[in-house]
Structure formats: structure tokens, C-alpha cells
Design a protein around this nucleic acid. Sequence first.
DNA 1: GACACCCCTGACAACGGTGTCAGATGTATG
DNA 2: CATACATCTGACACCGTTGTCAGGGGTGTC
Lengths: 350, 350
Amino acid sequence: MTSLSMPRPPRITIREVAQHAGVGIKTVSRVVNDEPNVAPATAARVRASIDALRWEPDAHAANLRRTTTRTRSVGLLLGSVANPFAATMHRAIEDVAAHRDVAVFASSLDDDPEREVAAVEAFVRRKVDGLILTCVAESQEYLAELVPPGMPVVFVDREPTGYTADCVHSDNVVGAGVAARHLLGFGHRRLALLIDRRSIWTARERERGFLTALGEFGVPTDTATIVADLSDQDAAERAVMTLLAAPDAPTAIVSGQNLITIGAVHALRKLGRHRDVALVGFDDVELADLLDPGLTVVAQRPQEMGLAASERLFAALDAGRPLDPARIVIPVDLIARGSGEIRPPAPESA
Amino acid sequence: MTSLSMPRPPRITIREVAQHAGVGIKTVSRVVNDEPNVAPATAARVRASIDALRWEPDAHAANLRRTTTRTRSVGLLLGSVANPFAATMHRAIEDVAAHRDVAVFASSLDDDPEREVAAVEAFVRRKVDGLILTCVAESQEYLAELVPPGMPVVFVDREPTGYTADCVHSDNVVGAGVAARHLLGFGHRRLALLIDRRSIWTARERERGFLTALGEFGVPTDTATIVADLSDQDAAERAVMTLLAAPDAPTAIVSGQNLITIGAVHALRKLGRHRDVALVGFDDVELADLLDPGLTVVAQRPQEMGLAASERLFAALDAGRPLDPARIVIPVDLIARGSGEIRPPAPESA
DNA sequence: GACACCCCTGACAACGGTGTCAGATGTATG
DNA sequence: CATACATCTGACACCGTTGTCAGGGGTGTC
């Protein structure tokens, strides 16, 4: 019989290349790894044989013995690869990585602590060279025993708890403060803040910034409505509908995240209150400038964040040792387009 | 001295587990691979040792000898991971993959043929189990010698040339036809089509569908303007500006892609012609319903596409052999929201 | 001319697992 | 009780590469 199992693909090994070039396997190894002490003529012959046989060294076998084992891959954990904010960071990170011939494993977190741990485990099992993580678990202490010594970790978007490493994030407190002050400056005194689950660090930070700004304007915090646990567009839309139906409804809304913003805009439209109730979103969204009124946002800089995070990661990888953990805070930009410049219906007493 | 080099991380090997359990290494191997012929008591002891030592088998070493080598990873090549259409497919694929404990390498193509080859090479070098590819090179013949025998390939969004494999894509010809007929039905006779580079299969297909529809209405194709090579928002915006400045400017525009649509909307706004010139976009965009007028689009179903593509890939992987290549065409949906229902300014003579 | 030294080179062990196979043990059968 | 057979187990080669090290050859120095 002619073998029932799959015909073993005739993989070319270093041995055949060595034989073809008439040298020892170690010499071939030297050539492909740019190690010194190979005569130019020998190297040329070896290279010719490699090309002739179309040999691709087996990275896994190589890493098996190599001390400085590098898989040229990194793990990237994002809120969701489908979220434009995360996707933009992803792209920036990929560009930096691709430039160094490093591949990126991307996973979606979905703000589920269990997925966080599972994703990191999966990355580690695949022996990535480093990790860029968006976290949501209450604590990242688990990383201490999960992440092998020497594997660099950079957090993006959210600060970790119980694990010290680089972290790149937006200036959330300032950003939310800017949003709130912008509205307060236009005379609003009854504000609402719509945020995601408080298990998410950015939600907490933005809430903090929001409340601080209220304080600065002497607005008692109990006049503000804070709706949390808004994790998608629909929930945000419903929340705004409810909010505006209540007596003493807010005259201005700060949205804590891109999906919430979109949900809020939908609700305002449905209620016909979009020229009436002020709205400032956190994180920019596509087409925001073409709405009527235009959507005022505190824009993040996701590309810059991805860039900074990947540069930190590769810096640590290049150094071959953990760097002193840095916290990199990326500024945010208020972009006034109309929705945030709507004045409250009547002069209010502070 | 205390060793200058990095302190070798004390990796736990199968040997230590075997010793701890008082068995041979092969028995440990049997247990972790669910091979038969291990006494239950022995297996239990081994499992206890694995847990006690927190041993994680080294997948790379395992795959070295294994005949049926699986890295539990797949390579995904997309237009750009930052494009919402691609990002949504990505998410769908990731979900299917994650469910099977398979990790996804994602790369951006940027419609550069060289990046296509480079990305596939990188995936193959990393020994992914399968490939999901968006292609742009003139021919995919190169895959024959690049992709190892037995590695399944599924194309998404665009059909390959010179390489036979599964392919999942939108019904581009029909979609573009629907868009054009929609406008023709409202009385438009001077149409413009804005598409990306013709090296991109979808651009060509959509052009074909567009022209077919014109033919059905007896509209001579030379009365239609086709602008190609629009690869980003700005280019599309400039193209529309130029287009509408010309004499005999089109009264309706079909946009061949999400970024082009956004660029076109910007241009129409700037010119104040947005209630005046009809526009139908290919591929839906966020907030399209809240523009004024609402944006009429031929929506794709990226999630469904990603789902279908990954299911085909895993079906082939499960079967352990190449499946009969299938072409899966995903329907598109016309969503009328206003911009596509604008009538031409004056009755025209066909 | 002997010696030291540097530059090349390849034999061989090692990396952490799996495949093969032979041997040990237990049970049913003649 | 001997034999056959199935079940369980571990020794060992092997996967494709890199690290180590010893050896061969050329050159410079005394």
C-alpha cells in the first residue's frame, strides 16, 4: 500500500542545504544567523544553496535550543478588535511590529475578566515575545505567576492593579474634566454622565474627572446623574430616553465612550431633542462632523497610544531586560462641533 | 560572579513531571495527549503532578516531532485591521477561532501586492494551521509554492486568480447593480461611480455591476463618469469636488467603498449639494442613519462573511484534508435612508 | 623553525517533546 | 500449567535547529 496517512510533505532541512553546499550544518546555521567567522566564499555558496533549495529555517526548532528564544510574535489584548478606537490602536501597533518582522496575535477582551486571563494564558502558551494588554480584571496580580520572567508587558488604555509595568493611556481625568467644564461654561448645571461598567478603569477615571469639574464650579454632585453599566449602543440609547423623560432632566450629557455616544445621539434624535440637549462625547467617532449639530467630542489619540505602547514594548525587547516602568499619558483634544455648545434652555441659578 | 547573562528561567519539563509522578516521560506524554493505554490510577497521579508543578507542555517542541503538526493559530490578512468592514470580519473570525482555542495573527494588506506576499510568507514561517486572505496581487499563483501542502486557505472579500480555494465574498455585481438601478429608477441618467484601484477585485466587480445596470436602462456608458484609484477619504473628497464642478456633472453618485463614501459625503457637504446630488454607498458606515439626508447604502454583511470564512477553514482543518473548493456569496442589502432617493433636478431625456 | 594566535569549520550534545518498539504484567483459554 | 493475547509502561531514537568545543590551517613573532 502507498501509505494511508498524509504523504509527509518533503520538508527541506538544514542538513540538505549543508550537503548541497558541501559544508557542515553548523556553517549553514552561522550564515542564516549572521554569525561571524564564515569565509565570504563559503557564505555565498551556502546562500546559493538556500535559495536553490528554497529552504526556510524552522523557527520552532531554532527556538528550542536558542537561549534568547524569540518567536517574533506579540500578544495584543483589546476591548474588541471591532471597536474603531481599538482597531486604530491595533493598526498602529501592527505597523510598528510589521516593520520589525514581528507578528501580532490580537484578541478581544469584551470586558470579561475571565477572557482576560484566558487570553493571556493563550498568548503565553504560544510563547509570544511580549504582551500589550487592555485589562478589566479587578487585579492583574495573576500576571506575576503567569507571565514568564523577562517577558515584557505594556498596558494600554487602562491602568493595571497589583502588577507593575509600562502603561499608556489617555488623560482620562483631564479629558472628562474638560468635557464637563465645557458644558458648565455654557451655563449648564444639570449634567448627566453616561459611563460603562465601573469595573473598567477608564470609566472610573472619567467619572472622577467629571465630578472634580462639577466641584470646581460649585455644583453639588447630587444634582448630576451618573448612569453606569452602559456597555453598548442600545443600553446607552435606552438610558438617555429614560433620563430625559424624568423631571429635572439634565440639560447636558457627557458620554464616556464611543458606543455610548452613538447610542446617545440616536436617543436624542428619536426624542427630537438633539438641538436642545447638549452632548459631549469621549472618543471621536467617524462622521461626527457631519451630524447636525456636529458632535462635540473629547478626542483620544488611539494611533499615538498604539505607537507609544509598541515602542515601549520593543524598547524592552531590544534592551533584553525589563525597563523601568513608565506611565505615558496621551493628551486628549476637545473638538467643538456644535452639540457641546448648546446652551441650557433658561438661565439657571447655580 | 553571579552570571552576567539573564538567569535562565527555571522551565519545567516533562522529565521533572515524570520524575515527580514516578513514571516515564512517555507516560506523561500519553496523559496530556489523551492517548489510550494508561491505567486510570497512573493518569491521576500524573495529572496531580502536572498541576502541582504547574507544567505547561511546550507546544513548539511537541510539534517538532508530531506528524500532524498543529500550532492552533491561523493567519488573517485584511485590507486594514483599522477599517470597520475588515475589523468586523476580524471579530467574527476571532470569535469562531477563540471558541476552538485557536489564536489569530492579523495583518494589514494596504492593497500592496508586496505586502500580500510578505504577509503570507510570515504566516507560513510561523506555521499557522490555515490562512484567511484578502488578496490584491495580480495573481495568487505564488501560493502554490509558498503554502505547504495540506494548509487550507480561504479567501475573503476578493476572489483570487490562479489559485483555487474556498472564497467568501459579497455579491458585488448585484450590489453595485442594485445601487445603480435604485438611482436610475429615481430618474437619474448621469451617474458617477467612484471606486478604488482596479487592481482590487471588488472594485472591478462593482464597476461591472454598475455598467450592467446602466445597460439595462439603455443608458450609454459614456455618459457615466467612472473615477478609479480612490484609495482614501481625501482622494474621494477631491474627486467629488472636481466631478461636480464640471459641466454635465453627474446628478447621482455610487460610491464603491466605505472610505470613499465618507469622503463623498464630506465633499457634498462642503459644496452644499448634499440635498441635491444623490448618493448610494457600498458598505454601511456608522451614523449613516443620522446624517441629513440619511445615507443610502448597499450594506455588506461583514460578520456573516467572517463567520462563513472561518467555518470553511475549520471544516477543512477538522476534515484533515482539503475540501472541494466552494464559492460562498453573501448577499447585500439596500438600505434606503434618503441620500439615494433624491431625484434629479429636472426631467431628463433618456 | 617553534610557538602563539586568530580565523574557519564541523562533530556532537542539547533543547523538550513524540513515535516506535520491546518488555512487563495481568487475564482468559486450552 | 503453558500459552495467547490485550493492556500498560518506559528506553531510546528522532524532530530541526543552536551552543560548545576541539581541531585544522594560515599568519605573525621571536
